[in-house]
Structures are given as structure tokens and as C-alpha cells.
């Protein structure tokens, strides 16, 4: 039985992968310190609780990315003849499902808090012998919580594009949007301080809505990926022009009369069928193999293309 040859990353992407993994580990580490710091001063603010749960949830994407990056490199075998490249897509789906569910739950809780006119109670804490309003400590923790994801998100974004790793990309985007969560929660706590009890619930709703939105957007993409949508560019979300370029390349070959290309994404890879109509009979097997090699040279993400000579395209 013939198995797929394992895909190897080009040197540049291999380096990007090492950096991406390092950044994801760093994200796990920083997020853990943020969660601990926020947990220490977590008071009765619904907004802060929501932001805290969001931070807990933001452990899921990096963990999923790290696990998926480890598994996707396994060589194809008898049980999984097509390899493990879809692992990233599955990780992406899992992470976005978690986000969606929690977003909906938090939105419901925020709405309930607002409707029941629940006034958040925040008293004082003892800090080095001084009595401090806990709200100040909560705000300090929230300010700290904003900084690491902002920096890490910016660093991860270009790597995600380079590697075409959608899970990493979603993670980077969520990190970059995290400062808004923090700012909203700070507004909520300040609102409590100003005696505006509803500000907190309102901020919680805004945060929950952003979590839900992240979840739905990513869920949508993950499902489309797994349903073999035509490849899209990761940066813009537009359809990738690569299939058209492949067709053009083939139709410039002297022996090709017509060609058609169907691609789908398998994790970061692009694979699929290529149909060619030869002008005349000849050494078709050799021609097809040469054509496949030339197509392969177009993009490092192309993998295991099946080039099939046919009499007619329709």
C-alpha cells in the first residue's frame, strides 16, 4: 500500500514554526500569571469575572495549537494514510466551539445581572497593613492582564500568516483584541466606583459579546475548512488565486489542451485534484509527473497533488 510521503516544511517555515511554538508556550506562561493575578483580587464585578473567564479560555487556543503542531508532523501510516494534517483544523474547531459556548453563557449571565438590577459590592482589602479599595487592585490586575497578550498577539500574527496556520491566526487575533476586554472591564470597575451599578453589567455584556463573536467567526471558518471550501488567503480571507495560476501554468505546457484544478485545505497544506486534457497521445506518464513537479514548485503549501489525464473536462 502506498502512503503519502510526509510533508516537510521549507527551512524558512521550519524556523517560523519553532518561533511560533516558543511564543505559544510563552503565551501559556504569561496567561497563567495573568489568571493568577486576577484571581487574587477577583471581586464581585461581573465584568471582571467575565474578563477572567475569557483569560481562562484564552489558554485553550495556544494549547490546541501546540498539541496540533506536535501531532500534524506525524508521518502518514496504515491507519491514517492521509497523515495528520487536519489536526490543526480540528483543534481550531474545538477551540472555537469552546469560545462560542462560553460567550453565549457569559452573555446570558451579563444580561441576567443587568435585568435583576444586581448591584455589585466591592469592599476593601488589606494590603501591607493598609486598607485599600479592592477596585483599585482589580484595575491594577486588569491593566497587567492587557499587556502580555497585546505584545504576543502582534508577534504571532506574521508567523500565523507565514505558516498559514489558522488556529495560530485566530489565537493571535484574539490576543490582539484582548486589550479591549481589559479596557471594558476597567470601565466596569470604575463605573462601580462612581456609583453606576449598571456600568459593570454593561461592560460584562460587551466582553461576552466579543467572546461570542470571536467564537462564531472562528467556528464558521473551521466548519468551512473541514467541509473542504476552496482555499482562502489567511490575511485577507479572499479566495486564493493559486488554482487559477496552476491552471494557467498547465495550459502553457505544449502537450496540454485544457486543465482544471480543484484544491482544498488540509490544515496549512493545499491538496486536491488536477485534471489535464492532452492534445495527443504520447509519454503521458512522464508528462504528468513533470507537470506535477512544476506545479509543486509554485507554492510550498501544495502537497500530494493528484494529476489526472482525462479525455474531456466536463
Amino acid at each position: 500500500m502506498r502512503l503519502r510521503r510526509p510533508h516537510r516544511f521549507p527551512a524558512e517555515q521550519a524556523r517560523a514554526r519553532v518561533r511560533a511554538r516558543r511564543l505559544e508556550w510563552l503565551t501559556l506562561l504569561c496567561t497563567s500569571t495573568v489568571i493568577a493575578a486576577m484571581g487574587l483580587v477577583l471581586g464581585n464585578s461581573q465584568a471582571m469575572r467575565t474578563a477572567w473567564i475569557e483569560d481562562l479560555l484564552s489558554l485553550v487556543p495556544p494549547a490546541a495549537v501546540l498539541i496540533a503542531m506536535r501531532i500534524e508532523q506525524r508521518a502518514p501510516n496504515q491507519r491514517f494514510p492521509f497523515g495528520y494534517y487536519r489536526t490543526v483544523s480540528i483543534a481550531f474547531l474545538t477551540a472555537s466551539l469552546a469560545l462560542t459556548a462560553f460567550g453565549a453563557l457569559l452573555l446570558f449571565e451579563g444580561g441576567k445581572t443587568l435585568l435583576t438590577r444586581d448591584h455589585p459590592t466591592i469592599g476593601t482589602m488589606q494590603l501591607f497593613g493598609a486598607t485599600v479599595w479592592q477596585g483599585w487592585l482589580m484595575i491594577a490586575a486588569l491593566v497587567y492582564s492587557v499587556i502580555p497578550p497585546m505584545i504576543l498577539g502582534r508577534l504571532k500574527q506574521p508567523l500565523a500568516v507565514e505558516l498559514h496556520n489558522k488556529a495560530l491566526h485566530a489565537d493571535a487575533r484574539m490576543n490582539r483584541a484582548d486589550w479591549m476586554t481589559g479596557a471594558a472591564a476597567i470601565l466596569g470597575v470604575l463605573g462601580i466606583g462612581y456609583g453606576l451599578w449598571w456600568a459593570d453589567a454593561a461592560a460584562a455584556i460587551v466582553i461576552a459579546a466579543s467572546v461570542l463573536r470571536d467564537g462564531l467567526v472562528n467556528l464558521n471558518r473551521a466548519v468551512k475548512d473541514l467541509a473542504d471550501e476552496a482555499p482562502r488567503r489567511i490575511e485577507t480571507g479572499d479566495f486564493d488565486p493559486l488554482p487559477e495560476r496552476m491552471r494557467a501554468l498547465l495550459e502553457e505546457l505544449p502537450w496540454v489542451k485544457e486543465a482544471a484544478v480543484m484544491l482544498r485545505e488540509e490544515g496549512h497544506l493545499l491538496t486536491g485534484q488536477v485534471y489535464v486534457v492532452p492534445r495527443a497521445d504520447g509519454d503521458i506518464t512522464r508528462w504528468v509527473e513533470e507537470a506535477a513537479a512544476r506545479l509543486q514548485a509554485l507554492d510550498w503549501r501544495l502537497y500530494d497533488l493528484a494529476v489526472m489525464p482525462v479525455r474531456r473536462l466536463d
Partner: peptide
């Protein structure tokens, strides 16, 4: 619930 100014005053006193 939520009367935080009063609560903080009371807590400082009790401390």
C-alpha cells in the same frame, strides 16, 4: 448590596 462607599467606610472603621 452595592453601597460601596458606605461599605468601605464601615470596613475601615472595623479594621
Amino acid at each position: 448590596k452595592g453601597e460601596n462607599g458606605w461599605l468601605v467606610t464601615l470596613e475601615r472603621f472595623l479594621d
